[in-house]
């Protein structure tokens, strides 16, 4: 077991990296467990980010994350490219264990593990994953050149994916269970103007067809209950996210959906010295910039907490 650190940050992405920039500049020399295969977070699977202030021509999601990481590194963040697999946050000294069995002890912890994608919950979704069912348009769009495919969902990510996929596919159905999108107006307009995108409103996917590969979907009209089949070779699921809070169950207060409950107006959790930020907490805004904002708040809250304990640097 190593020495007791002032601060360990679990999770990367805009919130974890921003927390690290602030904590490192505060001389806390934070350890950041950035994830073994998820470092950089959800933005690593996106293309152009157009709404992050400061980049008038947009910036690629992965590039933005590399820059944030480098900025955190510049001020002395120590990165561990591994996952937290076990935590004990309840005592005064918090213990975190990574996937290689290394243990870290800290006076304060910032939780920034973000969210993972939500599945529809159909049996075929599992068996045909990698056989036409996908959760990453930027990874897998390439395989659907000149084919008819569908994106399921109605938020920004669904509409962005649909637009992105028109580079490859001959036809993209955007299947949404409501009659309006949650996506931003500019994304909606872009999709509506795209001749390859066809909106399928008030519709749920109730089955995925095909044995060895996807051949179609069964759709159900949410108003009339009518069902019909649609032939396609790919289905991209973008129906939202679930917070990655499994590790915290039983220690940190979570809401019914699994989001960490932070005290209003702060990033403090129910346990002293444990702070939470980003998509792990936020089920309302879920933007790169709001995640970065709460990451900053968490670092400042942690810094104040540590100062109250007489700890001012690593």
């Amino acid at each position: 077991m190593s020495k007791i650190e002032p601060l360990v940050i679990i999770g990367s992405g805009p919130s974890g990296y921003t927390a690290a920039v602030y904590a490192a500049r505060a001389q806390l020399s934070p350890i950041l467990l950035e994830g073994s295969v998820t470092a950089g977070g959800a933005l690593m699977n996106t293309t152009e980010v157009e709404n992050f202030p400061g980049f008038k021509d947009g910036i690629m999601g992965p590039v933005l994350m590399e820059e944030m990481r480098a900025q955190a590194e510049r001020f002395g963040t120590r990165f561990i490219t591994d996952d937290a697999v076990k935590v004990d946050l309840t005592g005064e000294i918090k213990t975190i264990e990574d996937g290689s069995g290394n243990k870290y002890q800290a006076k304060a912890v910032i939780l920034a593990t973000g969210s993972g994608y939500k599945k529809i919950g159909l049996a075929k979704e599992e068996t045909l994953s990698g056989r036409g069912v996908s959760y990453c348009a930027t990874c897998d769009g390439f395989f659907f050149k000149e084919q008819a495919i569908a994106v399921v969902g109605g938020g920004d990510s669904a509409v962005e994916e649909a637009t992105f996929l028109t580079r490859f596919a001959s036809k993209v159905y955007l299947i949404h269970r409501r009659d309006e999108l949650r996506a931003s107006r500019i994304m909606q307009k872009r999709a509506q103007d795209d001749p390859k995108i066809e909106f399928v409103w008030n519709t749920e996917v109730i089955d995925i067809l095909g044995e060895d590969k996807v051949t179609g979907v069964t759709l159900k009209d949410t108003k009339t209950g009518e069902t019909k089949n649609l032939s396609l070779t790919g289905i991209f699921v973008a129906i939202g996210h679930i917070p990655r809070s499994e590790l915290l169950i039983g220690q940190i207060d979570l809401d019914d959906a699994g989001y960490v409950l932070a005290k209003p107006g702060s990033t403090k959790t129910n346990i002293e010295g444990v702070f939470a930020c980003g998509d792990l907490v936020d089920h309302v805004y879920r933007q790169a910039i709001t995640a970065a904002g709460t990451g900053c708040q968490a670092a400042l809250d942690a810094e104040r907490f540590l100062a109250s304990q007489g700890i001012f640097s690593a």
Partner: peptide
Amino acid sequence: TSIPTMNVYKDGQLAKTIVGAKPK
């Protein structure tokens, strides 16, 4: 149709398919 896909072949035959990045 998805990457990363990791196929394991044994004696020339496909023995396992792993789809998506996973921790070690």
